[in-house]
Design a protein around this nucleic acid. Structure first.
Length: 121
DNA sequence: CCGATGACTCTGC
DNA sequence: CGCAGAGCCATCG
């Protein structure tokens, strides 16, 4: 008796698991890529319920426009920003530049090269 | 069934 | 840029 949402959950988790290191995606994009458009909120719910033991790169998921969705001052928010920074994704003013780090941004890699993002060199 | 609640998103002012 | 409104959707009481 596996409901639809269970399928959606599995699909969504996989999409999140596939966001490459150093890249980010958004709730809406994840939902759509998983085949469940208009389910951004479900994505958020799933990530919120993840056990600490989970391996899913939940921190690579941000809100539309690259904004960090987690409440300011929250522990999780700091952790997300820190973990992103560890893989070269800079979060300025609580938001990341999707043109450079968005999973679907073709300019991403070239930009990293131009700006030397993620490694002082 | 109804109303309230979110790690949401878009539009309009 | 910020704020309000409206849509959207699974959950919960």
């Amino acid at each position: 008796m596996v409901g639809q949402t269970d399928e959606a959950r599995a699909a969504i988790k996989e999409v999140v698991a596939n966001i490459p290191r150093g890249r980010v995606s958004t709730y809406g994009a994840v939902a759509r890529r998983a085949g469940w458009p208009r389910h951004a909120r479900l994505v958020a719910r799933i990530l919120a319920d993840l056990p600490d033991s989970s391996d899913l790169p939940w921190y690579r998921v941000v809100a539309s426009g690259g904004r960090i969705a987690l409440p300011e001052g929250s522990r999780a928010r700091r952790e997300q920003i820190e973990r992103l920074g560890e893989e070269g994704v800079s979060a300025t003013d609580g938001r990341v530049d999707l043109c450079r780090f968005g999973q679907d941004s073709p300019a991403g890699d070239m930009d990293r090269w131009l700006w030397r993002v993620g490694d002082e060199n």
